[in-house]
């Protein structure tokens, strides 16, 4: 099945002074795909992701996200994506409802739509009783689930998740991935970075970055076959052991 392309990256490069963080990478991601973006710390994956989100401007190369050029149409790109940062991305001192309303408002949703959709969401998450609870009073797992829900609340074409499950217990991580699958089924493309190799197995395709290059890009099964190993962990170890950059 050939999917419609929603992210197209072509020789993308980002330099900071003499340091090349991202070195001429190219790949494509299809609609509704769960695309794992892996790499050791300092391999350049966060930089690449920030460029795709319009947070950073590439030194050279092109990329289109949701059909818009990231260099010239960053406004439209931003309208069509959701973003969940590595650090926690909701406001601690606002309650659940206020956070949802704020972020939905930012993406231009109508007040009435926000209200009805919030009811549906809170019901689905079993969160109705926490509607007026301040975020800081929630456990981390709940926060992350909520942050993800908020990131896809406005129905973006693509959602970028930067290490979304850091510090979350295995059971919650499992639930989190169920939410990711559900979003992907509804047609939202998932672009996710992670350090957990079991999560890499959940992705449709995985790209592994080493020293600013993409060292491997394929489905987890193909990668395991290619390197003749049993787990993604071994694939990753194999590739990263040749890396020159440390943390």
């Amino acid at each position: 099945m050939k999917r419609e392309t929603v992210i197209k990256v072509d020789n993308l490069t980002k330099r900071f002074g003499s340091f090349t963080a991202v070195d001429s990478i190219s790949f494509e991601v299809g609609r509704g795909e769960i695309f794992g973006f892996l790499g050791a710390n300092g391999a350049g994956k966060t930089t690449a992701m920030r460029i795709l989100c319009g947070l950073s401007i590439p030194t050279s190369g092109n990329a289109t996200v949701a059909g818009f050029d990231i260099a010239t149409q960053s406004e439209q790109v931003k309208r069509n994506i959701g973003y969940m940062s590595q650090k926690f991305s909701l406001y601690d001192d606002l309650n659940v409802w206020e956070n949802i309303r704020l972020f939905a408002g930012i993406y231009g949703m109508e007040a009435r739509d926000i209200a009805t959709k919030t009811d549906v969401l809170l019901q689905k998450l079993n969160f109705e009783s926490e509607r007026n609870t301040l975020i800081k009073a929630l456990p981390l797992g709940w926060k992350q689930k909520l942050a993800f829900s908020v990131a896809i609340f406005h129905n973006p074409k693509i959602v970028f998740l930067d290490e979304p499950t850091g510090g979350v217990d295995p059971a919650t991580r499992r639930q989190f991935w169920e939410m990711i699958y559900e979003a992907a089924e509804s047609g939202i493309t998932i672009f996710v970075t992670t350090h957990y190799m079991d999560e890499a197995e959940y992705c449709n395709r995985v790209s592994i970055m080493v020293d600013g290059h993409i060292a491997a890009l394929d489905s987890p099964n193909n990668l395991k076959q290619q390197f003749e190993v049993d787990t993604m962990n071994e694939v990753f170890q194999h590739l990263v052991s040749n890396a020159k950059r440390g943390e």
Binding site: C53, G54, L55, E75, K78, R79, I81, Y83, M84, S85, Q86, K87, F88, S89, L90, Y91, D92, F103, I106, Y107, G108, F160
Partner: peptide, 13 residues
Amino acid sequence: EVGTMEVLLASPV
């Protein structure tokens, strides 16, 4: 510091 600025800058605001 908290990371919310990044989310805001990635949004159309």
